[in-house]
Nucleic acid binder design. Structure first.
Length: 203
DNA sequence: CTACGGATTTTCT
DNA sequence: GAAAATCCGTAGT
């Protein structure tokens, strides 16, 4: 499968977010490949978006990578415990990103089960199988993504997104999650997910 | 199966 | 010193 190039990410977050649905997020560790279908995303539109970490042009050490070139990863720790994986979008100097909120496991199920639960995949309960990757913190655990992966080039060969074979998907637009502080921006329909997919975090 | 509240620590004010 | 782009276990239908 073809890896998405820099140009794909060099657009505004909303356009990239929608186009990422159905694409395949891959993480290779020691030659082992884990692959997952992207099923839920959120667009963060930067300077003009009260929910974004870069709102109003805030430029701290944490947020710095969003001001860089598109197609790099932005990983941050949330609630003291969980990592969230984002993809930097739009032109250099425009601090936008897409949060990957949920994915569906495709390859490397055993490795994911170990990273996530320290258990073999076939001992998982139904609830645990869905819980593998049905949320931003969860998928980061399953794919072994943490702060070390902040600023990684997704046009490289270890962590990247491939074309999927999923053309006819039904996209739902909804309010973003966990941003009640963002005033009017909390109601924008900037979360997108694949209709009826089991791994979507909030329906 | 749903609802609730506690966990835990980085980051910025 | 407060808040945070979340998750999980427990308790109650």
């Amino acid at each position: 499968m073809k890896t998405l190039n820099r140009e794909f990410y060099n657009r505004d977050s909303i356009a990239v977010a929608k186009d990422l649905l159905g694409k395949v997020l891959v993480h290779k560790i020691d030659g082992n490949r884990m692959a997952t279908k992207i099923v839920e995303v959120e667009a963060y539109m930067g300077v003009e978006d009260k929910a974004a970490h870069s709102y109003g042009g805030r430029r701290t050490k944490r947020v710095e990578v969003m001001y860089g070139a598109p197609g790099f990863s932005y990983v941050y720790l949330i609630y003291g415990m969980y990592n969230c994986f984002n993809i930097v979008t739009n032109v250099l100097g425009t601090p936008q990103a897409v949060l990957i909120r949920a994915v569906e496991p495709l390859e490397g199920l055993e490795a994911m089960a170990q990273y996530r639960y320290k258990k073999s995949y076939d001992t998982l309960t139904k609830r645990q199988i869905i819980g593998l990757t049905s949320g931003p913190g969860k998928l980061s655990m399953a794919l072994s993504i943490d702060k070390r992966h902040n600023g990684v080039d997704l046009c490289g060969s270890r962590l990247y997104v491939e074309e999927g074979d999923n053309d006819n998907i039904d996209i739902v637009a909804a309010k973003r999650i966990g941003i009640d502080y963002a005033e009017e921006a909390k109601d924008y329909l900037w979360r997108f997910y694949i209709k009826d997919n089991k791994y979507v975090s909030v329906v």
